[in-house]
């Protein structure tokens, strides 16, 4: 088979592009430390009673993150038609300069959990616990910083109402058990 030399050149450049893309993503994982949502969060039977007994969700109190150690915190969120608990009723409060792990699950249908304007973004699937860890920087001022959270997967009539908020507060305004 005869392939034109320009086409051979383009074939080589195409391969270079593909390898470059995969290389960039690999750099993101190894160098920049970006992790994918995976099966680390484990599973839970999708009903309120079972979810509330799950160790991650049982320790969740009102809208505060739970302090683990150092600057590490955990928040357990139930995404359900059509609210986030916590998040929708009152904002989820996390302290600045923290490393927060969100555990999100659903007792009913598939939802999304997307912190608008950031790369914190996961699906919420009944039966599965999504686990994502994100780092919030130090605040520039004494004012809390707010992030919107939206459900980005269609979950039924009323889906467009499903949103919440995360509030990053200065260290001294943090009211959780430090």
């Amino acid at each position: 088979m005869e392939i034109h030399r320009y086409e051979k050149l383009w074939f080589g450049l195409s391969l270079l592009l593909i390898v470059g893309f995969i290389g960039t993503i690999t750099y993101g994982a190894v160098g920049a430390g970006v992790q994918m949502v995976s099966d680390d969060g484990g599973t839970v039977e999708p009903s309120f009673s079972t979810i509330n007994e799950n160790e991650k969700f049982a320790q969740q109190e009102d809208n505060q993150a739970v302090h683990v150690e150092g600057n590490e915190y955990e928040v357990a969120v139930i995404a359900q038609r059509f609210s986030f608990q916590p998040g929708t009723g009152s904002p989820i409060q996390v302290p600045e300069d923290s490393r927060v792990t969100f555990y999100v699950t659903s007792p009913d249908v598939i939802h999304g959990f997307s912190v608008v304007g950031t790369n914190a973004n996961t699906m919420v699937i009944p039966g599965q616990i999504a686990e994502i860890t994100v780092e919030f920087d130090e605040l520039d001022s004494d004012e809390p910083k707010e992030y919107g959270v939206v459900c980005h997967e269609f979950c039924g009539a009323g889906h467009e109402e499903m949103a919440g908020q995360i509030q990053v507060v200065p260290e001294d305004q943090w009211e959780g058990d430090a």
């Binding site: 912190v115 790369n119 860890t133 920087d137």
Partner: peptide, 25 residues
Amino acid sequence: YFVIIGGLWAFMYFVEFLGNGPTVV
């Protein structure tokens, strides 16, 4: 085309994406 998508990819990954933190770590 090759130059455009190569450049755009770098911009999207290193500026848009990595600059859009917080990111899942």
